[in-house]
Nucleic acid binder design. Structure first.
Length: 136
RNA sequence: CAGGUCGGCCGGGCGAUCGCGGGGCGCUUGCUCUUUCGAGAGGCAGGGGUCACGAGGAAAGUCCGGGCUCCGCAGGGCAGGGUGGUGGGUAACGCCCACUCGGGGUAACCCGCAGGCCAGUGCCACAGAGAAGAGACCGCCCCGGUACCCCGCGCGACAGCGCGAUUGCCGGGGUAAGGGUGAAACGGCGGUGUAAGAGACCACCAGCUCCCCGGGCGACCGGGGAGGCUAGGUAAACCCCACCCGGAGCAAGGCCAGACAGGGCGCGUUCGAGGGCUGCCCGCCCGAGCGUCCGGGUAGGCCGCUCGAGGCCGCCGGCAACGGCGGUCCUAGAUGGAUGAUCGCCUCCUGCGUCUGGGCAAUCAGGCGUGGAGACAGAACCCGGCUCAUAGGCCGGCCUGGCCU
RNA sequence: GCCCCCGUAGCUCAGUAGGAUAGAGCGGCCCUCUCCUAAAGGGCAGGCCAUCGGUUCGAUUCCGGUCGGGGGCA
């Protein structure tokens, strides 16, 4: 369990990160990452569907991913939202390969994310500034 | 000792580093409140420290039963659903205990949706003569007719004729003992009886109904007598009988904060729309809004939320399930959802290698090293059950067989 | 939390108020036709009716328990 300020808690947070963030897939996980405000603490969310296994297996996968996320939190304490979706092979993966996939996917996502974040310091979230009121 | 049967219990242990949840007690930061302007009992939000606690026997499936909450306390009838030997336990149950009956087992013990087809209706394919107050296919028997050979008797003249018996065929009738069909054929066996047979009659047995006596709270059991002579199966077929069932569910329900925007149409406010959460009718009650379409808004926090038909120990009552009394203990409350990550040692099972000891040997016992395995499974308002999954291990009662004393 | 539906041939589906040997289409295999294929025609195989018990003379059908799949409401 992460502290409350480091958790993605609402459905809106999840869908925003999944839809507007960059995506990286590996054998065991699919990782979505998006930049947020630098003053905002980094947040993590996990999606583990019933296809992965029964409740015991799903909890174990979530705990391991959460532990891996806690390591990233020490490097990037602010300005990052991450959603990790566990795939069915994650059920039988051991700790080393699961953490390896996670770390590899995160590195790939950050490579695509950081130059974009430098070019446009504010996140691309504000759609309603100039051309917003388009009536359908 | 071997095999079997029944029941109870455990569900890896210890430690190190880094982390999580709610709670107790200090520290600290900001805001707020009070203010005698020194500060301070408080409130809200955050940081950090420390202390103990933190998933299961099934938390599961959601198959039953309750508590709790709301629905203006819920009456009667029909429909609908459930249960189904008897007695008890319980808050209640479709659960548990004891007993009865039926079946299985040498036994301990196990299994059983175990009321009613003499209230009615339906169904019983194929086969078979006939399938529910049935039936004559073969067979058996009697009567009548007819045919020829053989046989017997009589007549006669060597031909032949008549009668009888036997056999075949045709017709009429009797018969449910036998064959055959079927899951099932309208009691069994022996005798009397008869043309052949038949509960037609008799003895015994099985079964049915009724009565009496004894035992038991009761289901029922034991004994005796009478009657009529026999009544198929299926109710997990409709149904009948007895008993039980108001509905929804913690996303119940309540409080706080916050956002928004109304409008059209239809029905209705004495004549009553609509509602009282499965359908219909009656009764009773509430009652001024209700239905529908278009448009708009919200997804936050707190309570409920864990002390309860609670756990453990002792005594008493009871065959038991269980109950009573006394003492003692407090033991999870998450909300994108808390127990994890990385290791070390021990324990248990097991493969391989090696060593030691016993033995001719198969092999047995033990030590060491190394590798593997440790299940089923995650609380979500809370309990009582049932069912299903489950590596491995511990304890006890009883039965049968063998050996020894 | 509550409620409902479905498991039949490799696939998509029928069927049955309980009755003998469970059907259809597509697919598969073989044969005919053709130089070869496709098409067409003919033939064949393939099912413990999800599973385990029970009721019945007899169960895919009726009853109960499991397992798996799908859906709905708040």
């Amino acid at each position: 369990m992460l502290p409350v300020r480091n958790r993605l808690r609402t459905s809106a947070d999840f869908s925003h990160t999944v839809r507007s963030g960059v995506r990286q897939g590996r054998r065991n996980v699919v990782l979505y990452a998006a930049v947020s405000d630098e003053a905002q603490a980094s947040r993590f969310g996990f999606i583990v569907s019933k296809a992965v296994g029964n409740a015991v297996v799903r909890n174990l996968v979530k705990r391991r991913l959460r532990e891996a996320g806690a390591e990233t939190l020490r490097d990037r304490p602010t300005g990052l939202d991450v959603v990790v979706r566990a795939l069915p092979p994650a059920a039988s993966a051991d700790w080393a390969s699961l953490r390896g996939d996670y770390a590899s996917a995160l590195r790939g996502a950050l490579r695509r994310l950081v130059p974009a974040a430098e070019g446009r310091p504010v996140s691309d979230g504000g759609p309603g500034s100039d051309s917003g009121t388009e009536v359908g």
